[in-house]
Amino acid sequence: MKDVDLVINHGESRALIGPNGAGKTTLFNLITGEIRSDRGEISLFGANITHEPVQKRIQLNLGRTYQMSNLFQELTVKENLFLATWKRGDVSWSLLATLFRSWNEFKAPCHHAFEIARQVGLEERFNAKVNELSHGEHRQLELGIILAHSPKILLLDEPMAGLSATERSFMTRQIMGLKSEMTIVIIEHDIDVAFSIADQVSVLHQGSIIAEGSPEETRANPQVQQIYTLSRNSKDKQYD
């Protein structure tokens, strides 16, 4: 990343767009701490988190989804959501408290897990193993896991990737429904979806932010248009 200066206000919905390799996911990894930054500063709700580990940033109510679904494949939907809800403070979270009681006996997180499954439309697949779910259901569960954690800022990395038109429409409605509850930063290649969700758009190119503004301003920006035209042309050439 080069000289990226990005400020996202509380309650805002921000889309990060740009051609492949622009550094969008890298920026997410820097924010979550999965990649350590060698320079610069990252602040979350006013606190400097540049040198904080991932867990600490999560404790500050940061949540993210992944480009490729990152789920517990051999576990059930219920188990996935239980793990996501477990640390919400409904029960005593100390190692000793967790040792000799079946996880199924913790009613509050199990109930919350079911509520989340219903919220993302997976209640009928609650006891199914993740590796038995469709791609669309994976994305729904991915979102559910993050919602179970009740984040205040949500980083969505290409949530529509590989979804059918019906699934896209369902997922878009889900994300729109979250706008009033949390700050959303979304990476999305489908510009129409990104612009329909976002209040503000930042355009990344070769590791730098080259444009910022409302969806309309971004759409009209000649530099952005040029990058997208170049990007499309180079893709067409590859296919030729």
Partner: peptide, 21 residues
């Protein structure tokens, strides 16, 4: 126990478990 479920979570995806805190 939840501890066992957490271990299976780590077995399946360590990065996700870290992201869950």
């Amino acid at each position: 126990s939840p501890f066992g479920l957490m271990l299976r979570g780590i077995r399946e995806s360590e990065s996700r478990m870290r992201m869950l805190g």
